[in-house]
């Protein structure tokens, strides 16, 4: 079976997804799941009243079956108590959709997990756990940084033209790093800006950055610089998903802290 041979029901939910959107306000909980296999992303918003899911909305970045399974599970969960909704399995979703291609079964997992996370978030709100946000934000040693110093890793830039048409990664080091990122967009189409924060501190500069062609990686950290003689790729850590991945770049700029 091909990965895109979908049932009519799947296609119907893909064409006309039910309950798309977001919810806000009292009693609303959010669940978010990213799929390490294919990179899909799902968000569920539930509004619970007297332990019953009164309203539910979703957003999905993913393939046809990801959209269809998310849409279907909102229909299944709506009106159920949170405990009933927790019992919805991926098989239930797939069955309601008249089957999914085997390779796409993980999509229904994703939908079930995202819903569970939303319910979990709701329950945690009910019984607030004393969660400690650990802020172990000490400057970590980046592997390979010394080896590639001057060979793709730079702590100071004297000549911007070095980066003409190169893929540059800039680590957040205050306003100067944002200015540098913006400046470099004139020389190369690929500038990646890395910050450990969830969002940038509001300022005119960071607003400019968000609107520019710079690709911003939030909640991310650089673990390692790799290459043969010069920098060719980096190992990144997505702290939100707790995943590591490689990214091809030609240069890394880590300005010295003032």
């Amino acid at each position: 079976m091909k990965s895109t041979q979908y049932s009519e029901k799947v296609l119907d939910h893909f064409r006309n997804p039910r309950n798309v959107g977001t919810l806000e306000g009292k009693g609303v909980a959010v669940g978010r799941v990213g799929n390490p296999v294919c990179g899909d992303l799902m968000e569920f918003y539930i509004k619970v009243k007297d332990d019953r899911i009164e309203d539910i909305k979703f957003k999905t970045f993913g393939c046809g079956s990801a959209i269809a399974t998310a849409s279907m599970i909102t229909e299944l969960a709506k009106g159920k108590t949170v405990d009933e909704a927790l019992k919805i399995t991926r098989q239930d979703v797939a069955d309601e959709l008249e089957g999914l291609p085997p390779i796409k079964m993980h999509c229904s997992n994703l939908a079930a997990d995202a819903l569970k996370n939303a319910i979990k978030a709701y329950k945690e709100k009910q019984e607030p756990l004393s969660k400690q946000e650990t802020m172990a934000e000490g400057p970590k040693k980046i592997v390979g940084m010394d080896q590639f110093k001057g060979q793709g890793v730079y702590e100071e830039i004297y000549d911007l033209s070095l980066f003409k048409d190169r893929r540059v990664m800039i680590l957040e080091r205050g306003e100067r790093s944002i200015e540098l990122a913006l400046e470099l967009t004139k020389l190369t189409p690929r500038v990646v800006f890395v910050t450990g924060k969830k969002s940038l501190d509001a300022s005119i500069l960071s607003e400019k950055l968000a609107k520019s062609s710079v690709k911003i990686l939030y909640e991310s950290e650089l673990l390692e610089v790799r290459g043969l003689n010069t920098v060719e790729k980096v190992l990144m850590h997505d702290m939100n998903e707790d995943e590591e991945y490689e990214l091809f770049v030609d240069g890394v700029v880590i300005l010295r802290n003032e």
């Binding site: 296999v37 990179g39 899909d40 993913g62 393939c63 993980h106």
Partner: peptide, 27 residues
């Protein structure tokens, strides 16, 4: 995501291709 793009084009009777993981055999 590319597969949903591809499917949307398919609905309009236009056949295109994508490099998305969701459309590949290995994901």
């Amino acid at each position: 995501e590319g597969e949903s793009l591809l499917l949307s084009f398919k609905e309009k009777n236009i056949e295109v291709s994508t490099g998305s993981a969701c459309s590949s055999k290995t994901l």
